[in-house]
């Protein structure tokens, strides 16, 4: 994915240089639709809490009201403002997704790069570690860990999700690194006596940057789903509201039987839209970065 601005023949695509990617990106409907949906929710998470006129957890509203001008998303059975809970929950989801996604991406990159580049014994050991964490049902591990923590914050939740969700990323990055390591330019860098770290981050990583971006996107979406699942089972953050917790409260308090759809539809819809937009964006990005997939 490196740009070929130097010494390239003056074909239209090459003249465009890095703009070529932008050119295809702006004409890819999947990427655009995904990005728009994602941005809407991101803006909601950033500015929503400022717009909310009520506190998320205080019981100052009339209980069980459907959406109205005063309470945009209605109120819970206990008289909490659903809109305020929703936007604050959105914020929690984005925070957990980002932190957990970064944690998992860094671990996955570190292990993938070193296993793929070094090979041999290092590869064997790291591969074994990856396989073990891959096979363990991580959700069960999170269950036990979270159950023993009496105080849970968004940070701890994100850390644990990040620490358990990296294996597939490590595996994918390892395979990519493996194929890049045998290329000539890496051999040249090695002949030049460059250090391992420099080769990895100066030669190998930039050549798979698009791949790394897509890996991060998938890790981000996966973390949001895992966090919602954990929250729903009652192991979410104890100090803030989240989308999973909203669903948990609504189901535990008979919102289904009472038909209070405004309580449980928005949080699930938001998660589905965010994660779905990420997946669709990912497919779009793949088409943008990979000329073979461009359907133009």
């Amino acid at each position: 994915m490196t740009s070929t601005t130097d010494s390239a023949p003056a074909s239209p695509a090459a003249k465009a240089g890095r703009n070529e990617i932008l050119y295809f990106a702006l004409r890819n409907p999947k990427l655009l639709i995904g990005a728009v949906v994602f941005t809407i929710f991101l803006l909601g998470a950033i500015f929503g809490p400022m717009l909310a006129t009520h506190e998320p957890m205080t019981f100052d509203a009339p209980p069980g009201m459907p959406p109205s001008a005063d309470y945009w998303f209605g109120t819970t059975l206990f008289g909490q403002d659903v809109f305020s809970q929703f936007v604050n929950g959105l914020r929690s989801s984005f925070i957990v997704g980002t932190l957990a996604g970064f944690t998992a991406a860094i671990i996955g990159m570190f292990i993938g790069f070193f296993a793929g580049y070094r090979g041999g014994f290092v590869d064997e050991v790291l591969n074994m570690l990856t396989n073990v964490v891959l096979v363990i049902p991580t959700f069960a591990v999170l269950l036990v860990v979270a159950a023993y923590l009496s105080v849970r914050g968004l940070g701890t939740e994100a850390a644990f999700i990040g620490l358990t969700s990296w294996p597939w990323a490590a595996r994918a990055i390892r395979a990519q690194t493996f194929s890049l390591t045998s290329r000539d330019f890496v051999g040249m860098a090695r002949l030049n006596g460059e250090s391992t770290l420099r080769i990895i981050f100066g030669e190998i990583a930039p050549n798979m940057s698009s791949y790394l971006v897509m890996t991060f996107i998938l890790l981000f979406g996966g973390a949001i789903l895992t966090a919602a699942t954990l929250d729903f089972i009652g192991l979410g953050p104890t100090d803030s509201i989240s989308l999973g917790l909203m669903m948990n409260y609504s189901v535990m308090n008979a919102a289904l039987q009472l038909g209070m759809w405004w309580w449980f539809v928005p949080p699930g819809l938001a998660i589905t839209a965010i994660v779905g937009s990420l997946y669709v964006m990912n497919v779009g990005l793949d088409e943008v970065f990979n000329p073979k997939l461009r359907a133009l």
């Binding site: 699942t229 189901v251 289904l256 994660v275």
Partner: peptide, 9 residues
């Protein structure tokens, strides 16, 4: 992209 519990709900 749908959380399991939400489709159930």
């Amino acid at each position: 992209a749908t959380p399991y519990m939400w489709l159930g709900i």
